[in-house]
Amino acid sequence: MTTGFDFLKSSYSSGSGECVEVARNIPPTVAVRDSKTPDGPILRLPSKAWTDFTASLAAN
């Protein structure tokens, strides 16, 4: 499936394949998918929602 998103895996991901991939190359959308099922569903978020989410993780 071609979506136009350029997904990247986190440098923190382990070799076991349990990871999410994120694409930020098509503003104003951030796309997230499960790395184990790259042809599966894609969660599309507004950029602000992604920024708020990652900021909340850093605060914990």
Rank of each mutant, 00 (worst) to 15 (best):
F5G: 03
P27H: 02
V20S: 08
A31Q: 02
F7I: 06
L8S: 15
L57K: 10
A23C: 03
E18Q: 14
F53R: 06
A58K: 14
R24N: 10
T29L: 10
L57D: 02
S14F: 10
E18F: 02
E21P: 06
G17N: 09
L43Y: 00
V22Y: 11
P27Q: 02
E21Y: 10
T37R: 08
T51Q: 12
N60V: 03
G15K: 11
G15P: 07
A55Y: 01
I42M: 04
G15D: 14
S10Q: 04
S35Q: 08
F7V: 09
D6A: 15
K36W: 11
T51E: 15
D52M: 08
S16P: 00
T37L: 06
P41T: 06
N25T: 05
R24Q: 15
L8F: 10
F53V: 00
L45Y: 05
P38A: 04
A31W: 09
P27R: 07
A55D: 12
R44A: 15
R24C: 13
S13M: 12
T2S: 14
K36L: 09
T54W: 01
G4E: 00
L43V: 03
K48Q: 09
R24A: 14
G4D: 01
G4M: 09
K36T: 09
T2M: 13
S56G: 05
V32C: 00
S11P: 11
I42E: 05
P41F: 07
S13T: 09
I26E: 15
P27L: 04
C19D: 14
N60K: 03
T29P: 00
D34W: 04
R24E: 12
P27Y: 06
F7W: 06
T54L: 09
S56L: 02
M1N: 04
P38F: 05
P28N: 03
K9W: 02
I26C: 06
N60T: 03
A23Y: 08
D52R: 07
A58S: 15
I26H: 13
Y12G: 09
T2C: 03
T54M: 02
L8D: 13
N25F: 09
D6E: 15
D6Q: 15
T3L: 13
G40I: 07
L45Q: 08
S35V: 01
F5W: 12
S10A: 08
A31R: 03
S35D: 13
Y12F: 14
R33V: 06
G15L: 10
D52N: 10
N60P: 01
T29N: 09
A31D: 02
V32Y: 01
A23M: 07
K9Y: 02
A23Q: 10
K9G: 12
E18V: 02
F5L: 11
G15C: 07
T3E: 05
V32G: 00
A59Q: 14
A58D: 13
I26Q: 15
D6S: 15
G17R: 07
P28L: 01
